[in-house]
Design a protein around this nucleic acid. Structure first.
Lengths: 121, 121
DNA sequence: ACTAGCGTTGACGCAGGCGTCAACGTTTAG
DNA sequence: CTAAACGTTGACGCCTGCGTCAACGCTAGT
């Protein structure tokens, strides 16, 4: 299939696909006229990238997953590189959640105090 | 005091202070030579801005707090505009935390599954 | 007089994942 | 033959809170 169809199948844009290629995540064969040509395995790679991006991974983080899939694994997560990224992400998430909950506490107290002083019954 | 000292007192940079002024958050008197001149009340405004930015508010969100302080209130949070921002922020935080926790669940399951398939013994 | 250190404005750079337009070639339907 | 609809590369725009450099003026100390 060509880039337009791949984009549609993967729920993204042709621009994004060229961007992934620029960054070495996917590679395309070329037909004689210079058009990119893809197959089902490429679709799987792009879908892996997309689902990871959607939950907050950045492009670099998706690389080990993509390489894992290209090495023939059934899942992009079952390679050491991917597992390491998952571990770091889990720690990042925990830190991020903790920070947000702390901020939430501050905001909640500020709000309670401010409304109390605004409407003192 | 001049801009350099204000920056130091508030724990920020002169560049940031000029940026806040550009966006109408703080205003400076000028001495005859064109230098900006600040006093203690300006320091309070900048500290309010800084503390809000640090916990994740954006510049626009700080505006009602700054105006509240300038209107003579003891706290920047005790005006309707500030309270509304605090309320929206609280909702934002709740949504953000929920999303992160959902992602955390996904990542944790992925990680468990991947490590299980990597070391099945 | 000269230098260091403060001030002034204006403008570019950055991160990230693309959107979007330009200017052009290819394919396909009528 | 022509136009629509696809493809190609290159490059600028976006967003946000500044960092950083340029090129200049003012002031204080020696």
């Amino acid at each position: 299939m060509r880039i337009g169809e791949l984009a549609e199948q993967a729920g993204t844009s042709t621009r994004a696909l060229r961007y992934y290629e620029q960054h070495g995540l996917i590679a395309a064969r070329r037909t004689t006229n210079g058009y990119r040509e893809y197959d089902e395995s490429d679709l799987r790679l792009v879908r892996e990238i997309r689902s990871l991006l959607e939950i907050g991974f950045n492009l670099e983080d998706t690389r080990p997953f993509v390489e894992c899939l290209r090495s023939g694994r059934a899942s992009g997560a079952e390679c050491p590189g991917s597992i390491e990224v998952l571990g770091r992400k889990l720690a990042d998430l925990d830190g991020c959640i903790a920070r947000l909950q702390a901020v939430r506490g501050v905001v909640e107290r500020e709000l309670a105090q401010a409304t109390a002083e605004e409407e003192p019954a």
